[in-house]
C-alpha cells in the first residue's frame, strides 16, 4: 500500500508541522498531513462522501467531497487535498452543493436503486445522502440497465443493480483482509466489481468469508443472506480496531 507523499509516520524525530487555516470562515488547526476532509469532520463540519471510508485508502473518485479553496479556480476533492497555512476552504457554497446534488442524481440514474425493496432501506448511505442534499427527485433520465445478482456465496450476496462503484469492498478486501478477492472489470459505464477472475462468488478460492466487504458497502449491493427489506444494518466498528491492531497508519493511499 502506498503512502500519500503528503503523509508521514509521525514520531518525535519526525514531527509533523502544525498549521492553522479556515474552513467555512472558522479557524481550525491541523497537522500538515491531515486531509481537509479529516479536519473538517474533526470540527463537526460535514462534507458528504461515498468512496471515502476512514481506515481505507483514498481514491478521490466519487467527487462528492469537492470543496472550494479561495484563490483556486478548480474544485478540489477534500479527501486528498491537504491544508496550507492560512488557506481558506469553503465546503458549502452554492456552487459545490449544486454539483454534489447533480453527481448524486447521476449515481441514482446509473443503476436500479429501488429503495423500497432494498435490504438496506433506511440504512443506506446513498439514500441518506439524497436526504442530506435535498434530492427529492432525479432530473436526468434513469438508465434502467440490466445487472445481475450473484447469490452463489453461502452467506452473502451481491446485487450489482445497487452498486455505486465506490470500491470500498475491493479496498477492504485487499488492504485489511489481505485476500484481494474483489477487483473491478471493464471500464466506463460498463465497470463492474468482480470476485476472483469474474467467477461466481461462491466458487471463489480466495474469499475467506470474513464479510468485511459486506459491512463496508455503503448501499444494499452487498448484503448478508437472510436479510429482508430494510433489515441489513452494516457494522463497521471493526475497522479502526483492526487498523490499530495491525499498526497501520490510517492514511494509506491508493494511487
Amino acid at each position: 500500500m502506498k503512502q500519500h507523499p503528503q503523509k508521514k509516520v509521525r514520531t518525535d524525530l519526525n514531527p509533523s508541522r502544525l498549521l492553522t487555516f479556515k474552513i467555512d470562515e472558522r479557524d481550525v488547526s491541523a497537522h500538515e498531513d491531515e486531509s481537509i476532509l479529516t479536519v473538517a469532520r474533526q470540527n463537526g463540519i460535514s462534507i458528504p462522501t461515498l468512496c471515502h471510508l476512514d481506515g481505507l485508502s483514498e481514491r478521490g473518485a466519487c467527487r462528492l467531497c469537492i470543496i472550494e479553496v479561495k484563490g483556486v479556480a478548480k474544485l478540489l476533492p477534500s479527501c486528498v487535498t491537504f491544508p496550507r497555512q492560512d488557506m481558506e476552504v469553503i465546503t458549502n457554497s452554492e456552487r459545490v452543493v449544486t454539483y454534489r446534488k447533480k453527481i448524486l442524481e447521476l449515481l441514482f440514474t446509473e443503476r436500479n436503486h429501488v429503495c423500497s425493496v432494498c435490504v438496506s432501506n433506511g440504512h443506506c448511505e446513498l439514500q441518506n445522502l439524497a436526504v442530506e442534499l435535498g434530492v427529492t427527485h432525479v432530473r436526468y433520465p434513469y438508465l434502467y440497465p440490466r445487472h445481475a445478482v450473484d447469490a452463489s456465496h453461502s452467506r452473502f450476496s451481491i446485487d450489482h443493480n445497487r452498486c455505486v462503484l465506490c470500491l470500498r469492498c475491493v479496498r477492504v478486501c485487499d488492504e485489511i483482509e489481505g485476500a484481494h478477492t474483489w477487483d473491478i472489470m471493464g471500464r466506463g459505464i460498463t465497470s463492474q466489481v468482480i470476485t476472483d477472475l469474474n467467477q461466481p462468488w461462491g466458487t471463489s478460492e480466495t474469499c475467506t468469508g470474513c464479510g468485511k466487504c459486506v459491512q463496508v458497502c455503503p448501499t444494499g449491493a452487498l448484503s448478508e443472506k437472510g436479510k429482508s427489506v430494510a433489515e441489513m444494518i452494516k457494522r463497521r466498528q471493526f475497522l479502526p480496531y483492526l487498523q490499530m491492531m495491525r499498526g497501520r497508519q490510517d492514511d494509506s493511499w491508493q494511487k
Binding site: 436500479n112 429501488v114 429503495c115 423500497s116 427529492t136 434513469y142 434502467y144 440497465p145 445487472h147
Partner: peptide, 12 residues
C-alpha cells in the same frame, strides 16, 4: 418519482 417498483420490469 423514480418508477420504483413498476420500473423493475424495465430491464426486460
Amino acid at each position: 418519482i423514480t418508477a420504483n417498483v413498476p420500473g423493475m420490469r424495465n430491464r426486460y
